[in-house]
Design a protein around this nucleic acid. Structure first.
Lengths: 111, 111
DNA sequence: TCTTTATTTAACTATTAGGTTAATTAACTG
DNA sequence: CAGTTAATTAACCTAATAGTTAAATAAAGA
């Protein structure tokens, strides 16, 4: 895994456990045990996955008593989104971006 | 590297050489030698990078005489783009999508 | 046919990834 | 203070990565 930021972000995302952890953090801060619970995997394995996510700056950690809660740090995902820009024209017609936006505001009205 | 498609796509992108190869293919089909030229790396190393991209279905290959030209196959990038959707609200205000779109059609008008 | 060009395969090496179990650290709790 | 809970570190294993050089394959061209 080369040292540049984009490579380290892509590398961190190239594992379903780590993607599931990220997804789990979209609903808010979680402890390591909370994050580990859905997986049939030892705690040290989870600790290692968290280190990979932390090095990629996709999560941030703090201390609360004996807990080390994690929260999502989404900025590197924005970098990926920007990297994708050069490829969007190859897989997506331009007008779909507007379609997405229109669907989005439609959904909000219905709430 | 787990077997699922998204992991294999992210893994393929987690290397600057492979991303540069993809980028180089945005201007059209290229031979292996063409693709290898910018890199201070042996041909077998490039062959291996191409295999990773091919397994991730990010490139497709054909045969022309002794050449094995490569072309971009962007569909897996679309899957990443869709995966990103759940995180966009964390790094991007909704209205920016419309801003992007408006800038895009503005640029087209100027052409 | 012999040679050159394009590319891949084979064999090898060093490093990293992703997991394990056992031991350690740190902080709360009775 | 002793015990429990939360999490990390250490030590280890196996498989995969990412590179190398040298040999093999395939097609073109003289």
């Amino acid at each position: 895994m080369p040292a540049d930021q984009l490579s380290s972000t892509f590398h961190a995302l190239a594992d379903p456990t780590r993607r599931a952890i990220l997804s789990s953090l979209t609903t808010g801060e979680k402890t390591v045990s909370d994050l580990a619970e859905p997986f049939d995997m030892s705690m040290p394995a989870i600790t290692k996955h968290l280190k990979v996510l932390e090095k990629a700056k996709l999560i941030e950690r703090s201390k609360q008593a004996q807990y080390r809660p994690c929260r999502l740090h989404p900025e590197p995902l924005k970098d990926i989104d920007e990297w994708m820009e050069q490829y969007r024209k190859f897989f997506e017609a331009s007008f779909n971006r507007l379609d997405d936006y229109l669907k989005e505001i439609q959904t909000k009205k219905e709430e």
